Amino acid sequence: MKKILVVCTSGLGTSLAMRLSIERFIRERNLKVKVEHADMGSANFIEADLIIGAKQVISCLSKQNDIETIGLEDIVRRRYIEEQLLNCDTIQTWLKEKEGLR
Rank of each mutant, 00 (worst) to 15 (best):
V33E: 03
V33Y: 06
S42G: 14
S10K: 15
E36N: 07
L31C: 06
A54C: 04
G100K: 11
L12F: 11
K55V: 00
L31D: 03
S15E: 01
T9A: 13
G100H: 06
V76M: 14
E47S: 14
Q56M: 09
K34Q: 13
S62A: 15
L50V: 02
A54Y: 11
D49H: 11
T14I: 12
V35M: 08
I51A: 05
C60V: 14
F45G: 09
I52K: 02
A48S: 13
E99W: 10
R102V: 13
L61Y: 10
D74M: 04
E73P: 01
D74R: 05
L85R: 05
R29N: 11
I67G: 03
R19W: 01
V6M: 06
G71M: 07
N87W: 11
N30V: 09
L12I: 15
R24W: 06
L31A: 05
I67L: 02
D89P: 04
I51F: 09
L101T: 12
T14V: 09
K2V: 00
A54D: 04
L50K: 04
K96G: 02
G100F: 08
Q92E: 13
V35H: 02
K34C: 08
F25V: 03
E82Y: 12
R19L: 10
S15R: 04
T93F: 08
N30M: 12
I4L: 01
I75R: 04
E28W: 00
S62K: 14
L5D: 05
R102Y: 15
I52E: 00
S42R: 10
E97C: 05
S62G: 11
E73F: 08
T93L: 07
E23G: 09
H37G: 02
M18I: 15
L101N: 09
L86W: 10
T14Y: 04
G13E: 00
K55I: 01
H37T: 14
S10D: 09
I70Q: 00
E82T: 07
A17R: 04
R77C: 08
L95R: 14
M1R: 10
M1L: 15
Q84W: 07
I67C: 09
L31R: 05
E23N: 10
I81S: 00
S10Q: 13
I52M: 00
K32L: 11
T14G: 02
K96C: 03
V57M: 04
V6W: 00
L31Y: 13
V57W: 06
Y80V: 04
T9G: 06
S42H: 10
S21V: 15
R79G: 11
V76L: 15
K63R: 12
G11M: 09
L85F: 09
K3A: 09
S10P: 03
E36A: 09
I22K: 00
I4H: 03
A43D: 03
Q64H: 13
T69G: 02
D66V: 12
D66T: 14
